[in-house]
Simulated assay, not measured.
Amino acid sequence: MKIWSAEQEKGAWDANVRGGIKGVLIAAGITIPGSLALHRFSPTYRNLPLPAKAFAAVVIAVPTIVVNAETAGVDYERSLWSGTGKRELDRKAQADIDKWDAMGSGAKFRDWAKRNQWSMVGGGWAGSMIIAGAILARNPYLTFPQKLVQARVWAQASTVATLILTGILAGTASKENKPMEEEDHSWRDILEDEEREAKARKAEADASQKVAVKV
């Protein structure tokens, strides 16, 4: 486990904060114009109570902020890698790009669904809540708490369906990619790189020693 210095910890925190601020700006750029447009053109949205409108904004804003903050933190952590570790990460990233380019459209979608399974589930839940809320808002016989409960039930049903769908897609992607997967030799590559670096340093030190002896 790598121990970070105080400076690196501060850098990681600053990166997360910058990512969070970026997420806030993106969320504001989506929710504020979207809310204004819906308020102007949609009577259904205009008649929604303020808590429902605020909830819709939170559903969009929170994931946006969290994802951007986490991504910024991961990018900062990767920037600290150097030497053999960085070269291995670069090799793996290039291998992933080559593998992605070799896939067909269907395989790419299934692979994307496998890697973003929980994002799809969360997005499906949020979208279901918003759509269900907009539909139920037209019912004058239900109170707001009743509408909220029914919207949650619809969203839960949608979440279960999304889980099943993404599970099927992830399983299909795993079966398709299994024949293409090779044994992980990254540890061997790292050892070979370190051995080459050690030999290069030794050769450089021997050369410097010979020059010093001649002088």
Rank of each mutant, 00 (worst) to 15 (best):
Arg138Asp: 11
Arg46Cys: 02
Glu194Leu: 07
Ala134Trp: 07
Pro49Gly: 05
Tyr141Ser: 09
Arg196Asn: 01
Ala155Gly: 04
Asn116Glu: 04
Glu197Cys: 01
Thr64Gly: 08
Ala95Glu: 15
Trp13Met: 09
Leu163Lys: 07
Ala155His: 03
Thr44Asp: 12
Ala102Thr: 04
Ala137Pro: 04
Ser119Gly: 14
Glu181Tyr: 05
Pro43Phe: 01
Val149Phe: 08
Ala28Cys: 12
Met103Pro: 03
Ala212Ser: 08
Glu182Tyr: 12
Ala151Val: 00
Ala12Gln: 13
Asp189Gly: 08
Ala137Glu: 08
Gly19Ile: 09
Ala170Val: 06
Glu204His: 06
Ala212Gln: 12
Ala137Met: 02
Lys199Cys: 01
Glu181His: 09
Gly11Met: 05
Val149Ala: 14
Val24Pro: 00
Asn177Cys: 05
Lys2Pro: 05
Lys147Asp: 01
Met103Tyr: 11
Gly29Val: 08
Val74Arg: 14
Val62Asp: 03
Thr31Cys: 13
Trp13Tyr: 13
Ala207Cys: 09
Met180Asp: 11
Ser208Asn: 15
Gln117Asn: 09
Gln209Ala: 15
Ile65Asp: 00
Val121Leu: 13
Thr84Val: 10
Thr44Ile: 06
Ala155Lys: 01
Ala37Ile: 12
Asp14Pro: 00
Ala134Asn: 09
Ala207His: 09
Leu36Glu: 02
Ala61Tyr: 05
Pro63Arg: 06
Ala52Val: 12
Met103Cys: 05
Val74Met: 07
Leu169Trp: 11
Ala93Trp: 05
Leu163Thr: 01
Val24Gln: 03
Trp125Asp: 04
Val160Phe: 14
Asp101Met: 10
Ala137Asp: 14
Val215Lys: 13
Ala170His: 07
Thr159Gln: 01
Ile97Gly: 08
Ile30Gly: 01
Gly85Ser: 13
Gly106Phe: 12
Leu169Arg: 08
Glu194Tyr: 00
Glu192Ser: 07
Val211Asn: 13
Trp81Asn: 10
Pro179Ser: 03
Asp96Lys: 11
Val213Glu: 14
Gly19Glu: 09
Arg196Thr: 12
Leu191Ser: 06
Gly34Leu: 04
Gln8Ala: 12
Ser82Met: 01
Ala61Asn: 01
Ala57Phe: 02
Ala170Gln: 05
Leu142Trp: 11
Arg152Cys: 05
Lys178Asp: 08
Ala27Phe: 00
Trp125Pro: 11
Asn47Met: 14
Thr44Cys: 06
Ile135Ser: 11
Tyr45Ser: 01
Ala15Pro: 10
Phe55His: 05
Ala69Thr: 03
Gln8Trp: 02
Ile190Glu: 09
Glu195Asn: 00
Ala203Arg: 14
Thr166Ala: 10
Thr162Asp: 13
Gly133Arg: 09
Ala212Pro: 01
Glu7Met: 07
Thr162Asn: 11
Ala200Phe: 01
His185Gly: 13
Trp125Arg: 07
Phe109Lys: 14
Ala132Phe: 08
Leu50Asn: 10
Glu197Trp: 00
Pro63Ile: 02
Leu25Gln: 02
Arg152Ser: 15
Lys214Met: 15
Leu142Asp: 02
Glu192Gly: 09
Gly106Met: 07
Lys86Asn: 04
Thr162His: 05
Asp184Met: 04
Glu197Asn: 00
Asp90Cys: 06
Ala56His: 09
Lys53Cys: 10
Ile21Val: 15
